[in-house]
Simulated assay, not measured.
Amino acid sequence: MTRVRYFAAAAEAAGTGEEERGERSLLALRTAVVAEHPALADILPRCAVLVDGVRTDGDIALDDAELIDVLPPFAGG
C-alpha cells in the first residue's frame, strides 16, 4: 500500500488529507482517485505529484513507492 497525502485545495477536493492506495501505476492512481473523489477532476491536472519526494510527470510504476504527495499550485510570494 502507498500512502497518498493531499494538500490545500487537493485535500479539500478529496475530502481527506491522506489515504492508503493500492494502485500499481501513477496513471491508475490518478484514474481511481478521480473516480472516488470527483471534485479532484478539476484540480488534479494542475497539481505537482511527488513520488517518494521526487516530482513525477506521466506514468510510472508504483510498486516500491511509499509516499505520494499531491500539491496544488500555491499563490503568494
Rank of each mutant, 00 (worst) to 15 (best):
H37G: 00
A35V: 10
A35N: 11
G53Q: 10
L27G: 15
A10C: 07
E23W: 06
V49D: 00
A48G: 05
D52R: 02
E20P: 05
R55L: 10
A48M: 12
E20R: 14
T56Q: 13
A8P: 03
L27W: 15
V49H: 04
A32Y: 12
L27F: 14
A9F: 06
E23F: 08
P38I: 03
A10P: 02
C47N: 02
A35M: 12
V51C: 11
R55T: 05
A32C: 13
L29F: 13
E12G: 09
V51A: 03
P45H: 07
A9I: 04
A14I: 05
A39T: 04
A13P: 09
E20H: 10
A41L: 05
R55A: 12
T16Y: 00
A28E: 15
A10T: 01
L29I: 12
A39H: 06
D59S: 15
V33Q: 01
A13D: 07
A8D: 02
R21I: 02
R21Y: 01
A8S: 08
T56I: 11
P45L: 07
L44T: 01
L29Q: 04
H37I: 02
V51M: 06
A14N: 00
G58R: 11
E36R: 11
A9K: 14
T16E: 02
E18P: 07
R30N: 12
L40P: 01
V33M: 13
E23Y: 06
V33F: 04
G15D: 06
G53W: 12
V33R: 01
V51T: 02
A11K: 08
A9N: 12
P38Q: 09
G15F: 05
V54E: 14
G22L: 07
A11M: 08
V49P: 01
E23V: 06
L50N: 02
R21S: 00
L44G: 00
L29D: 02
A13V: 11
E36F: 05
P45F: 04
V51H: 03
L27N: 15
A9V: 09
T31R: 15
A39M: 08
V49G: 02
L50C: 07
D57E: 14
A10D: 01
E36Q: 13
E18S: 15
A13T: 09
I43S: 00
T31P: 07
S25E: 04
A35C: 11
H37E: 06
E12R: 14
G17V: 06
E19K: 10
